[in-house]
Simulated scan of single mutants.
Amino acid sequence: MSISSLNRSSFSQPLSSPSQLQPAAVAGTQAQQPRGDLRRMLMTDSFEQGPARAGGASGDFNAQLAQVMGQLSQLMQALEVPSLGDFGDEAQVAAPSASAAAPAHPTYNSDAGPGFGPPSAGSTEPAPANAPWLAKNNVGSPYNSNMQLIDADQKGQFKYTNTFTNKTNQPQTLTLWNKTGENGNPNDGQNFDKSTPKTFTLQPGQSQVVAFDSNSSVAWAVSKDGLAKPGANSGQTWGEATFANSGTGWSGFDTSQIAPAGHNGKMSITNEATGKTVTEANAWQTEKDDPALHDVGVPAGPLNLRTEIG
């Protein structure tokens, strides 16, 4: 794209007796048994130890108590049971969120934010001067690791984002793809029999933030039937964006569709910093239309877009 491609067609029970204190064995392992003397001490109440010896009741009791406590501490350590002091007064146990999970691929130190896969091979090779839409751009290694679905409160960690919002009264499935295909060919990412897009479904009123790495060139549409398959995006209003082109540093965004009678969904894309908005009314209608007035160029720097469907 130029952002700017002119060729869109290629585009248990309670314990009742001490006997129930026996530790349970885990399948395939041998149950860890407490030492015999310690086990007997733990299962014997103080009043069951009989009369204290003359002249040594207090001392013997304290010594035995200290011994029991020391052995109990050793047992807890052996079983990896944390002590109460490990928690603190305000400790809380929280389930980790899905977004906090570590990426399932190698990452690199990107200036666009954490968690992206390394840039794809050849992504910085310049496109022909007379055919800027043939740029390969970055698709990440592995493919699609140049884009991440993130939580809204993570947005500040990333330089380039797009917040998708469903303004309709029905669920909408967004299909988001790299312009460069999984086979490395420019403008082949739209062919879902050759390249795998990202998809997510938004309920009415729901939003989803997606973060992008530098030098990414992407497009998206609402799938007709909610499926990512060849032709699912044909006849739809497309959104397109490039984030920090490697040659110029500039970004851009637009709405696009070459099928003249194909518009059956409304879409608006807004630069959150400037308020500049493009809608389906700005979309390209034919390949002969001059796209210059329909692209929105953005100088080098952060870019946060907002895309509303419907």
Rank of each mutant, 00 (worst) to 15 (best):
T201V: 13
D188T: 10
K136L: 07
Y160C: 03
L174C: 09
A135G: 11
D188N: 12
N137G: 06
A98Y: 15
L174F: 05
G85F: 04
N109V: 12
G140P: 09
G88H: 01
Y108Q: 02
S145R: 04
L134A: 08
A100G: 05
P197I: 05
A94E: 15
P128W: 00
V139G: 11
A121N: 10
A127G: 09
S99I: 13
A127Q: 05
N146A: 14
N166F: 08
P96E: 13
A135Y: 01
S97V: 03
N146Y: 09
T107W: 10
G88M: 03
V81H: 06
G85M: 08
L134E: 06
Q148K: 04
P82W: 13
M147I: 15
G140S: 07
K167E: 14
N178G: 04
P186I: 06
F87S: 10
K155D: 07
G117W: 00
T161V: 01
Y108A: 09
F164P: 04
A101C: 06
N178K: 02
P103E: 08
Q170C: 06
T161R: 02
K167G: 11
K136F: 06
G184W: 11
L79G: 00
A129H: 04
F116D: 01
G117H: 10
T196H: 09
D89R: 14
Q170G: 07
L79R: 08
A101D: 13
N166P: 00
A121H: 09
T168Y: 08
S97M: 12
K155W: 09
T107E: 08
L84I: 15
T199H: 01
M147L: 15
G115E: 05
F116C: 01
D153C: 08
N183F: 11
L149Q: 04
A102L: 09
Q154N: 06
P132T: 02
T107I: 14
P171N: 14
G88T: 05
T163P: 13
A98M: 13
Q172K: 15
A112G: 01
Q77D: 08
P128T: 02
P197G: 11
S110Y: 11
L149D: 04
D151G: 03
H105K: 02
